[in-house]
Each structure stands twice: as C-alpha cells, then as structure tokens.
Design a protein around this nucleic acid. Structure first.
Length: 580
RNA sequence: GCGCCCGUAGCUCAGUUGGAUAGAGCGUCAGCCUCCGGAGCUGAAGGCCACAGGUUCGAGCCCUGUCGGGCGUACCA
C-alpha cells in the first residue's frame, strides 16, 4: 500500500509524464483546506516550456477523476488534488490491519547487508548518560533497516583495550581487587578508575606505571591477561543489564582487542598499496597526497592518519582499519554505519578515505552517523550521571504518577504487582529513550533531569498513553475491527486527516533509514498521535456508542492507529503498552 | 590559524529534493473531567528564521562574507 504512488498513477495519464517523476514532486499542502496532495508545477515549467499556472490549469482540464483522486483543481501554479476520503480509508485501513504491528516496512532492503557499529562503551569506564545516544540511535537504526528487509549486523565494538587497563589494574594492585563488603564489583572498579585517574593527573609516575602495566598485558603476560578478563567480564555484566532494560541486542559483540592479531596484516596491506609513509618516526598515510585519486570533489584531508606510533605501538585508527577489513570480509556489507559522537568526524573521514584508497568492498557505503553529546557532565571529574540512575529515577516518577491517577484502582486493580512494576519501568525507559531520539541527532542536548524525565508534551509517555487509550477502546468494544466497513464513515473532516496520517508511516520509515535519522519516525508519531487526540478529545467523538455502521469503521481506524503507533514505537525502542 | 557542526517564539526543537499565510512542545495567562483513560484537550500572548550581500519567478533551506557558540586539528579513544 503506497498512497502517494497511487495518486501519482492517477495523475500520470493526464500529465503524460512518468509516474515516478510525479511521485517525487507531490507534496502535502500546508493548509489542508487546499487539498490532500498538491503538485507544484514550477519544476515542470522548464521541461514543458510553459508557465507554471498554465501547466496547472491544463493538467486540471486533462485530469479524469479516479476512484481515489476525486478532483484536481488548478490554483495558481499548483495543481491541488482532492482525494476521496472513503476510498483512501478503504485502501489504507485494511492494508494496515493486515500488516499489523509490522506495518511500515517493505522489501527494499532484501538481499542487502548493513553493519551498524553502535553503543561501543569502554570497559572499565562508567556507562554514563552519554552512552545512551549511540546505543539508542544505533538500535533504532538497526530495527528500522530490519523492518525494510535488510540483513542487519549490529555490532558492539567494545573499547576493551588500551592504556586505561594499565591504570585500572595498577589501582587494583594498590587498593585491592576485591570490592569491600556491600559494594558491587562494578562500582568498586569505577571507584578505582576515578581515584587512579585523579592521582595520575597529579603524579606522572602513576601514569607511567599504568603504561608499563599495559605493555605487560600487550606482551601477553598470563596473570595480566587474567586480570584484564576479569575487568571485561565485570563491565559486560553491567552493560547487559542496561541492554536488557533498553531492549537492545547485538548480532556481534567484538571488542577492539579481538583485532590485535589482525593489526600487522592491516598495516601490511596499506604498505603494499604504496600508501604508507614515515613521518617523525611514526607510520602514517598522507591522505592529502592520495585522496584526489578518489575523485568526488571532496576537500582534501590535511591531517595524516597515524597507523603506528614512533615506538611501534598501534593506535585507534589501526584497530578501526582492521575492523573495517574484517567486516568487509566476513559480513560483506553494502553499508556500514558508525554511530559515534560528532567530535570524531575527522577520524572517520580519514578512516573512510583510507578504506576507499585500499579499495575495500563496500567502502562507498561507510557512513559516520554523528550525534551531539549530552552537555554538563565530565567523566574525569566524577560528576558522572549514570544511565542506570536516570532510568531508575524515571521508573520511580512513573510509578508515582500511576499511583496518583484517579483511575488507579479501576485500571490496575486486577494486575499483579510485578506487572505494575514492569509498566512503570517501560514508561520510565520510554521517556528517556524517546527524549533522546526525538530531535535530530546532531543537536547537543543539555542534561536536565526535568526535561529528560518529562511525561507530558512531546514525550514517549504521551505516545504510550495515546496507545494505551486506543487499546482500552478496543478492549471495551469487545470485538475486533471489521475487514470491511462502511468506509464513508471515515470521510468526515475529523476522521479523514487521521486516516491520511496513518498512511504516512512507510514514508517516514524509509526517510529515517535514508537519512540515518530516527527522529523522523519520532516526529511522525507525535503528529499522528496529536491528530487523533485532537479529534477525540475536542469533538468528544465516541466509537463504542456509535451507530453500527460508524462503529465498525471507527473501530478499524482505532485498530489501525494503534498498530501504527505500536509499530513506530517499537522501532524506536519504546514499548507500546496496553495499560499504563 | 585552518577544518567541521550549530544559530528559527522566553526555553527545547520541527520545517521534505528551494514552493502557497514559518509550526509544535515546555513555560506564562484563561478555560474543559455527568470522563470509551485529565500522563489528555481548547484558546490567548509570543517571530527583521543571528547579520549583510548574492543566485532564483520564489530562500528558514542554496552560494559568499561577518558575528556568536561548540568540536576537532599526529603518536589518547
């Protein structure tokens, strides 16, 4: 079911133009009174060598109404199309009911593979609120691509290697490996991490001890490897708890350390391609010198990419290069998305340029999905806001709101306590997750408890609440939506705009994937929910008490609406709830 | 210095490949529970779309410059 395409087809005959061209040009007018769709004729003017208003009026004359497109009227340079709302409902609603909560998908990604590198927290560092963004954006992009038929490989590229393990283990040796009674292992590690970092800043010999410890680890000392594994295991256990809470699951969890034995080969490949140079003792690729070979008119990258330090050690870029080679070989991706903060833009421009210079398959599909950070927290200064802390507070507030509800008794009476807890948790998580996804990802977000935990306005709970009320109507109706209904009942000016918006999910999902921008789905859902809440509350519209014909049609609308919301919310990682 | 990103209502943000009169939410003020769920809804106030040029029939959107903010700029990740 694709409404725009059907409209374009209806118009193609009159216009004498290919359907695809028209489909791209069609837009929804700002003012709904003007029509359901509009064809601006400006761009056609050059092609047809006629003035836009003349094109519009001649199209209007040539147009023959169809069952779906009832009328085409020229208004200045626009051709405004009026759809038959009953016909729209007859096309849209049964299709949505058929698709269910998978509505919005397609097969456009069939046979294609996308790798999504996301979350990727550092072991031995706290999982702070800042890590939420990559996790939640990446997980949403995975679900969105999967819905479009792609084979998705979500990768958690753990930061499980590097000098911080040296420091951490120096601290463990000095202050104790085992947590004191009553302290869980992870918080013990984090406490050590913060403490030793403070000391290292004040005392260079501490930092040197850390580096020395790490050298021993790299050399493969068994005792240090064992200590390292312990740290990794402790951290991963914590991360898993958060991932379960967020409903996040990875196809591949593979840390930087797993590329250790591929680093030499990666550098060797660069050398054989004739790209490796020595500069100030380090081994680098001078991208400025080679990148013009790639064409594409990209601005040159002045900064060289470093693959080996003067002391022979490898770097971040070396491991990322090894990782991209591995992924190309094993996963054979068409696209590979790196959901990583905007400050690393240069690093990825360098990495991608190098991959293209090496002719890595799929390197044209490498994308840095950059995002702004939460402001107002610094890891090193101890003023860390733990994600888990935020989620727990969100759950508390949600439970409080539930208890304060006048409907508490009637809504929740028959539910067991653990179910209530699960609902409070889903609402709390929904608030935090949606808050993160609702704006374009490049925007920085200032950390603010009240904002992140808000339950009214443009929030996750608002959408969940709308969903719950729809579910409630369907529950009370005591019957499922009909396959066939008097669709004319959906044609009035209150219901028709809602039905038209229901039809918009596939386009929103498609655009979200193309732009790697989950906020497009978020914005779509808010508009959808608002359009319903407006008519429902404002007009006091009743579904269940409506006369039989209207009741059936409205039940189909409510059911389709609920499925559309459920589908979109699931894509974002927000749980649709039957009650809350 | 150079590079990248951001600048739209008091605050946080939408604004499709340039298209009709720039839209939401929060906050403020005024309203709506004889309710299929008030975590909702209605209304009001609030804008030289940072500034200046340019391209175009048409610019919040594209180009150039200026200002403001953020980030990056070789041996951290």
């Amino acid at each position: 079911m694709d409404l725009v395409r059907t409209v374009a087809e209806a118009l193609a005959g009159a216009a004498g133009l290919p359907c695809e061209d028209l489909e791209g040009l069609l837009e929804v007018p700002r003012d709904e009174a003007l029509g359901d769709y509009a064809l601006p004729c400006f761009t056609l003017a050059r092609r047809l060598r006629k003035a836009p208003p003349a094109i519009a009026s001649s199209l209007a004359r040539a147009f023959r109404p169809t069952a779906l497109v009832r009328e085409a009227r020229a208004v200045g340079p626009y051709l405004n199309l009026r759809l038959d709302a009953a016909a729209v409902a007859a096309v849209v609603l049964p299709a949505v009911l058929e698709a269910g909560e998978d509505y919005g998908g397609s097969r456009e990604g069939a046979g294609r593979t996308v790798v999504v590198d996301y979350s990727s927290p550092n072991i031995a560092k706290p999982f702070g609120i800042g890590h939420l963004r990559s996790t939640v954006i990446g997980a949403a992009l995975c679900r969105i691509h999967r819905r479009l038929g792609w084979r998705v490989v979500g990768v958690n590229h753990l930061g499980d290697w590097g000098t911080q393990f040296g420091l951490l283990n120096v601290a463990r040796e000095r202050y104790g490996r085992e947590p004191p009674p009553g302290v869980d292992p992870l918080h013990h590690l984090l406490g050590l991490y913060v403490r030793i970092h403070r000391e290292a800043e004040a005392d260079p010999s501490v930092a040197e001890a850390g580096r020395a410890w790490f050298r021993g680890l790299e050399a493969g000392e068994p005792a240090r490897l064992a200590a390292w594994r312990e740290c990794v295991a402790t951290s991963v256990a914590e991360f898993d708890r958060i991932y379960r809470l967020l409903g996040v699951d990875f196809e591949e969890t593979r840390g930087e350390s797993s590329y250790n034995d591929r680093l030499e080969a990666a550098v060797q490949r660069v050398r054989e391609a004739g790209l490796l140079a020595t500069s100030e003792g380090a081994q680098v690729v001078d991208l400025a010198a080679h990148v013009e070979r790639l064409g594409g008119g990209e601005p040159p990258i002045e900064e060289p990419i470093l693959l080996r330090k003067a002391d022979g050690a490898t770097l971040y870029a070396t491991r990322d290069l090894a990782a991209v080679l591995y992924r190309a070989e094993v996963h054979r991706f068409e696209r590979c998305l790196y959901v990583v903060g905007a400050p690393q833009a240069l690093h990825f421009r360098q990495l991608f340029a190098l991959a293209r210079l090496l002719g890595v398959p799929g390197s044209e599909g490498l994308v840095h999905v950059a995002f702004g950070h939460y402001l107002g927290m610094r890891t090193r200064e101890g003023s860390i806001v733990f994600l888990e802390e935020v989620l727990e507070e969100a759950e508390r507030r949600s439970a409080e709101t539930m208890r304060a509800s006048g409907k508490f008794a009637s809504l929740y009476a028959e539910l067991p306590g653990e179910e209530l807890e699960a609902i409070a948790r889903a609402v709390g998580v929904g608030a935090v997750v949606f808050n993160d996804l609702k704006n374009r990802r490049i925007k920085d977000v200032e950390f603010d408890w009240d904002r992140i935990l808000a339950f009214d306005g443009e929030t996750g709970p608002y959408l969940q609440y709308t969903h719950a009320r729809l579910a409630s109507i369907l529950r009370r109706a005591g019957e499922g939506p009909p396959r066939e209904a008097a669709w004319g009942e959906c044609a009035d000016e209150r219901v028709a705009p809602v039905v038209r918006r229901i039809a918009g999910l596939p386009a929103a999902v498609r655009r979200a994937a193309a732009d790697h921008e989950p906020s497009i789905v978020a914005g779509y859902l808010l508009d959808l929910a608002q359009s319903w809440n407006r008519v429902e509350r404002q007009e006091g519209m009743k579904v269940i008490d409506a006369p039989p014909a209207r009741r059936g049609a409205l039940l189909a609308v409510v059911a389709a609406l609920r499925m559309t919301l459920a589908s979109g919310l699931s894509l974002l990682g927000v749980r649709p709830l039957a009650r809350m």
